[in-house]
């Protein structure tokens, strides 16, 4: 490996590039870098990698799979000394999904989070708060309605489009 010859920034950038190639196990269109779960990357001169990864939801079954995929990808690139720290604070928010990630979600047929998690009315789960206006990822129509607060995973809700009649999932603001 040539990693030892690189300076800190370039060594870290090389890891970030590899993380771009690690798909989210449940939404493979998205990389875990797009998802914003990797909070810190450190690479020592000897090539030892230390990552800080935060879970999306407390009970997300993908968390273990994500860590395994990271190790697998880095190992295949020659990094055989990888430590992954799980960090809980600050808690993951959909605000950390990159713009590129949001575009990929939409292309994949999942409506990306509308607004910021901190905003009232962004559907942040306030009991009497209004639902956000979620445009259909298929036809772009604003005429959509919520079918269920939870979708195939805890992070998504189920919607349907009243114009193209397609069902779709919405990645909830959290």
């Amino acid at each position: 490996m040539t990693v030892v010859a690189l300076d800190d920034k370039r060594r870290e950038a090389a890891i970030w590039d590899l993380l771009e190639e690690v798909p989210d196990p449940e939404v493979p269109a998205l990389s875990i870098r797009d998802l914003g779960v990797v909070r810190d990357v450190r690479v020592a001169e000897n090539g030892a990698v230390r990552l800080a990864v935060t879970p999306t939801y407390s009970g997300c079954p993908a968390t273990a799979a994500i860590n395994l995929s990271i190790r697998d990808r880095l190992l295949r690139a020659g990094y055989d000394n990888v430590a992954i720290d799980t960090v809980l604070a600050p808690a993951w928010t959909t605000d950390w999904i990159s713009d590129e990630g949001k575009r990929k979600l939409r292309d994949y047929g999942i409506a990306p989070p509308v607004g910021k998690a901190a905003d009232e009315g962004a559907g942040r789960g306030t009991l009497f708060g209004a639902d956000p206006d979620v445009p259909c990822p298929h036809c772009g129509s604003a005429a959509t309605e919520k079918v269920s607060e939870f979708g195939s995973t805890a992070c998504k809700a189920q919607y349907r489009c009243m114009d193209c009649l397609e069902p779709f999932e919405y990645f909830k603001c959290i």
Partner: peptide, 21 residues
């Protein structure tokens, strides 16, 4: 504990929205 609670809070607000509705 504060970190666990901050994370859990995001989740239980959606639970309450679901059961409340």
């Amino acid at each position: 504990l504060a970190a666990i609670a901050a994370k859990s809070l995001k989740e239980v607000t959606y639970h309450r929205r679901h059961s409340g509705e």
